[in-house]
Design a protein around this nucleic acid. Structure first.
Lengths: 205, 205, 205, 205
DNA sequence: CATGAATGAGTATTCATTCAT
DNA sequence: TATGAATGAATACTCATTCAT
């Protein structure tokens, strides 16, 4: 009922978003609370009205980033398409989006490192990765049902592999810009499809 | 000329190795030069005898790590096997090794982030990644010649995809320990082979 | 806008003054920023709120000292006296003052050395010395008009010589306390006056 | 009898001279023992064979500088000239010399500051200044005897004033290069002579 | 005698956090 | 509620000095 609560939350998200951009660009330790405040157009003390400390700020920033990415995914997911086509569309849409949020992605990586070292809220990330795998898994399952994918596919691990490939590709692309992300994705998709679609027989030695 | 006999290079590598472990465990900014010195059993000033500054220390540590990893790869590479088998062996050997250098791998990720933000020596990393892709590409090419892999495979991109998957898998594994790396690798391998081996025909919609 | 009312400029001058005393007593390099803070009764970080770095602190201290000295001179300058008498009064008043700011004077010397080596703001000092010479030159000129000084005196260089003597005298006095500054000044004044006042004829060989 | 003693002393003087140049150029605190060693073409440890510590090094450097200056003075002193002319020659010769040892002079000033703050060997400096005043005083006394200077001159204080002027002039010249030292000296000399030479009567108010 | 590798005390500077207004 | 002045803990880096060779 109190309209201020809305304001407070909006302001919170605003600050977190600004912080996320800075963290992505310069890294957690190089970003000062003061620079976040300046970038958000508020006083340094005010940041502490919304976040208990710098750590909380990074958690908030990460949540905001994840929300954006998940929203993008959900929005892009087109259930009128056949499952494998929906996955293809999703894949390339993400590639497109990444060309625009590359810096944020750096922040994403860094956050994972922080978690690994005991800082941050691991739950957020685990949950998000699980959700990501499940979305892909769900599509693959539907594709099995639709006969687009071979029935004996280990869906959970295929989804995990897909996701791993995706993040690894971005990761390498950040290091060497060649080949560009779209080319890499195209080649992968081709090869991914070859691996999962029905076939007469496998002839491995 | 020098009255004190010290193998300056050996000492340098020693310090870099110690630093690498700490950087991997706690991250660059959380590691103090003093802690590196203590861990190496030397005085703080001595670190500065071998490295101009903390940045140089991280470059040195990275070089050391890369050298180790490349050496491990080369050592593991068994050219008496058929190419695809050699690649499989390499893959699982790396997975094994990673269970032991997981922390170092965190350092590896972090270094990439630093490079992306303008610090560090980008050349080392680019070179290493290129070398990694080439090694895999070489094996795939040999596999094509041996008829183990379909002839129309885009080798360069398949190698890049393989490498991307590999790093992405480690990356996700660092975040959620489930499934374990070996399971993930087994599923990927199966599915990778399906994608690259010869087949009657592709039946994609 | 600012909820905390602090006269930033007053605080700045206060810190500079305190720093000036310490610099004078112990020299720039022997004085730590922390000791300045302690002496000013503030925290170390606060010093950096007012001065960008230690160098800025010394510039500020010097400005403060110069302002004090110049104010003292101007206050002492009595224009109701005949010009030469005004200069005499000024001279001895400065001597008196110096017995109290001797330590500061050490800082003054040191600052000049720093300037000579490329640090500090040379403009401040040059301006101050020029002003000092002009004040003396003005008095000598008035004395010429009043017939107290011989008309053919090279005023600019006499003023420069006077100033040089003054600083040199302080300088030697700092080294050997004998003779005391007043005696030295008395002798100089007598002899200075002999050199500049009108005379029948010069009988130099 | 031992020829090594000569060597040792020569080496000592050599190091001190080199140190003096560096101290003059950069200031005591900015000069490292290592840089002195490098400049002297020896090892860092060797410096400590000849000087107990950095402080001793500065004392040695100062002694060397003083010896040079005194030697220059004594060499220049021409007793075949009439006393006042000898003093004039000495003055201008020193001015000439200073154009070449300006940097060393900075060291001289700094040393005085150090003494004033309790470091260094005050005796050396006091002795040297006394000697300097006595040399000038002696010439003035001889000039009185020769009738070149008025008999009622307070010789001790005139000598002290002369010396003070000299150092003050150099000091100002270091700050503002204008007027050049020779011009300043010419004006001073003219005016000094006016003040000390015999005259009919003083007509001061 | 000469050396320079090793050392750690000492210091400038940054920045997260607090709190009076 | 918003602010930014004040603070001091934390840290990279320097350099005089020692001492094994």
């Amino acid at each position: 009922m109190s309209p201020k609560i809305v304001d407070k939350n909006a302001r919170r998200l605003e600050i977190a978003a600004v912080a996320g951009v800075l963290f992505g660009k310069y890294g957690f330790d190089k970003v000062t609370v003061d620079s976040v405040a300046k970038a958000a157009g508020i006083g340094k003390g005010t940041v502490y009205e919304y976040f208990q400390n710098k750590e909380a700020l990074i958690d908030g920033a990460f949540e905001t980033l994840m929300t954006h990415m998940m929203t993008h995914m959900t929005d892009t997911l087109d259930l009128t398409l056949r499952p494998l086509d929906a996955l293809r569309k999703l894949t390339f849409s993400m590639v497109d989006a990444l060309n625009h949020v590359g810096e944020q992605y750096g922040f994403f990586l860094e956050y994972i490192l922080m978690l690994n070292r005991g800082g941050g809220n691991a739950g957020i990330l685990t949950g998000m990765l699980t959700e990501y795998r499940q979305m892909v898994g769900g599509l693959l399952e539907a594709a099995v049902d639709a006969g687009q994918v071979r029935a004996n596919l280990d869906i959970a691990n295929a989804a995990a592999s897909y996701a791993a490939w995706f993040d690894g590709a971005i990761f390498h692309w950040m290091t060497i810009q060649s080949p560009d992300l779209k080319t890499l994705a195209t080649a992968f998709w081709d090869f991914f499809v070859s691996g999962i679609t029905p076939r007469e027989e496998a002839q491995i030695a």
